[in-house]
Lab assay of single mutants.
Amino acid sequence: NITNLCPFDEVFNATRFASVYAWNRKRISNCVADYSVLYNFAPFFAFKCYGVSPTKLNDLCFTNVYADSFVIRGNEVSQIAPGQTGNIADYNYKLPDDFTGCVIAWNSNKLDSKVGGNYNYLYRLFRKSNLKPFERDISTEIYQAGNKPCNGVAGFNCYFPLRSYGFRPTYGVGHQPYRVVVLSFELLHAPATVCGPKKST
Rank of each mutant, 00 (worst) to 15 (best):
K132A: 13
T55R: 13
V37S: 14
V32M: 10
V194E: 12
G86F: 03
C150Y: 02
F167K: 01
Y21R: 02
Y21F: 12
N151L: 12
C150N: 01
S164N: 09
Q79I: 01
A154N: 11
N24P: 03
F44R: 14
D9N: 13
N40H: 13
V180F: 03
C49E: 00
I72P: 00
Q144M: 09
H189A: 14
K56R: 12
P161I: 03
D59I: 07
A145V: 07
Y21A: 06
S19R: 03
F134H: 10
K199N: 11
P82K: 04
N13E: 08
R27Y: 11
R73G: 13
D112T: 02
T140W: 09
V77T: 00
C150H: 01
K198T: 14
L162W: 02
D90V: 05
R124V: 00
P7W: 07
L188S: 15
L5P: 15
K198V: 14
V173K: 14
V65Q: 05
A192F: 13
C195W: 10
G174A: 10
S108A: 12
L187Q: 14
D34T: 08
N130I: 14
S129Q: 14
A18D: 09
Q144R: 10
L162H: 03
S69C: 05
T15I: 09
F45G: 15
D98L: 09
N151F: 10
H189G: 15
N58F: 07
Y123P: 00
N147T: 06
G101H: 00
G196K: 11
V103T: 05
D59C: 07
F160D: 12
G117I: 03
I142Y: 07
W106F: 11
L38Q: 04
G196P: 13
N120S: 14
C150F: 01
G86T: 02
L122D: 10
P169F: 04
P7Q: 12
R124K: 04
I138G: 08
V182T: 04
P161T: 04
A22N: 13
N4I: 08
R25Q: 03
G74C: 03
V65S: 06
V65R: 07
A14V: 08
N151K: 12
L122W: 11
C49K: 03
E10Q: 12
Y123T: 15
A154L: 07
F185M: 10
N24F: 05
C49F: 05
P177S: 06
V37G: 11
T15V: 09
Y178K: 04
F160G: 10
K128A: 12
D90F: 09
A145E: 02
F99Q: 01
V182H: 01
I2W: 12
S200I: 15
T100R: 13
G74Q: 06
F126C: 06
P149Q: 11
L183A: 02
N147Q: 07
S53D: 15
D98G: 09
G155I: 03
Y159N: 00
V20H: 00
P96C: 05
Y143W: 04
A145W: 01
F167C: 00
T193F: 11
F12K: 03
Y50I: 04
L122A: 11
R127I: 01
E10A: 11
V37H: 11
L57D: 06
F17P: 05
V103W: 01
A190H: 13
N40F: 08
S29P: 09
K128M: 10
L60S: 10
V103D: 00
P54D: 09
C61K: 13
L111Y: 12
R179E: 00
A33L: 13
R73F: 01
G116S: 13
L187E: 12
F70N: 00
Y171K: 00
F70D: 00
F167L: 00
W106M: 10
N120W: 08
N109L: 06
Y39Q: 15
L57F: 08
Y119F: 06
F17M: 07
F134M: 09
N118P: 02
D97P: 12
I28F: 15
R127M: 03
K48P: 00
W106D: 00
A89I: 05
S53N: 15
G116C: 04
T3M: 10
R25C: 00
S29Y: 10
K114E: 11
F99R: 02
K199C: 13
E10G: 08
I138M: 13
A145D: 00
D98S: 11
C158S: 02
K132H: 11
L188R: 15
R136I: 08
Y171E: 00
I72Y: 01
W106H: 04
F44A: 12
V173Y: 13
D97K: 14
T63M: 09
G146P: 00
I138P: 08
Q176L: 04
L122I: 14
F17A: 05
S69Q: 05
N58K: 13
K48M: 06
Y39V: 11
I2C: 11
T55I: 10
F185S: 03
N13V: 05
P197C: 15
N75I: 07
L111H: 12
K110F: 07
N4V: 10
Y35A: 09
L183I: 11
P161L: 03
F44D: 13
N118K: 05
F8N: 04
S36W: 07
F41L: 14
N30D: 13
G101C: 01
T201R: 14
F45C: 09
P133N: 06
A14Q: 14
Y123G: 09
I138H: 10
T15A: 11
K114R: 12
Y21H: 10
L187Y: 10
G117Q: 04
I2G: 14
N1F: 08
K128N: 11
S53F: 08
N107G: 07
G74Y: 04
D90T: 08
V52H: 07
N147I: 06
C150P: 01
D137Y: 04
V37I: 14
A22I: 07
L125E: 01
R124C: 01
A14Y: 05
F156T: 06
N92Q: 01
L187G: 14
P197M: 15
V11C: 05
V11T: 05
N30M: 07
L188D: 15
D97C: 07
C61Q: 12
F156I: 09
L187P: 11
F70P: 00
K132W: 08
P133G: 09
Y91E: 01
Y119Q: 10
N92A: 03
V32A: 08
R16Y: 12
I80C: 01
N151G: 14
C195H: 11
L125M: 12
I142K: 04
H175G: 01
W23D: 00
D9W: 11
E186M: 08
A154Q: 14
Y159F: 03
Y91P: 01
Y159E: 00
V153N: 14
F45E: 15
N40A: 12
R136P: 02
E141P: 09
C49R: 03
